[in-house]
Amino acid sequence: MIFKVLLAGLISGLFQLDQTGAFQFMLSRSIISSTILGWVLGSIIGQPELGLRYGFLFGIFFDLIWLFRLPIGASTPPDYQIGSSVAISSLILGISFFNPKFIYIYVFICLVMGFVSGYIGAWFDVIIRRLNINISRMSRYYWNKGKFLKFKSLMLLGLFNSFVKAFLITIVFLFLILILNPILNFIFENIPGFIVEGFAIVIFFIPALGLIVVINHIIKESTWKVLGLGIVTGAIIFSYLKDFHVFGFLIILFFCIIIWVNVLKKEKV
């Protein structure tokens, strides 16, 4: 188990590097990092598809819920990458400790843990940025001494801090869930059966919450019409063309082209 926890921490740390420290190829986005992490850990426990599906589900939630909390200037938004990594790792590595009938409550617990770890990640970000002030002063010292190799090395130290942040938070939360599993099991056993069953609908709400947040943030008067068009088109497609994936997709594509042309026309006017 320790190997699996460390592996989860390592992968989480590597994805964290892409978030701000290096590259910014968007590999750290939750739908990418969480899906890959879920797939890797799922493969280790012999259930790659389960890891993939839940990884993507958590990815949607954490990516969308903080999508518009941007790290512009000095602001430190919650860490979506750590949040989704903690949530999916806790689920995949902890799932074997619970009776399968409790899976949906456990999914909810993992979601909340990921949410909390995202805020802790943001708090650590502030510490790292302060720590970077000291490192940058040391860098300036070496620059002024003409020791440019040391100056470059200190840049790497900044990267190392980001890695350690994600690695530590991920493994601490994973150990926490592993230690707490007897207590959680005891609590779960004492929850009335009908509530345990009712928790199944959490799967329906996880992606919906993300979409609700996005719509709320970017909706404008001019976009209500397009949103409505999407809802009506979706309602028709999913009511009548249940098995026509490609045909339905072509209809959607057709509407996208009409929207495009319409915007171009308006621009010309």
Binding site: A208, L211, I218, I219, G228, G230, T233, G234, I252
Partner: peptide, 14 residues
């Protein structure tokens, strides 16, 4: 505009 159109379809799909 396209994002909103697809958001509408996604919500209906859910």
């Amino acid at each position: 505009q396209i994002t909103f159109f697809l958001l509408g379809i996604s919500i209906t799909m859910l």
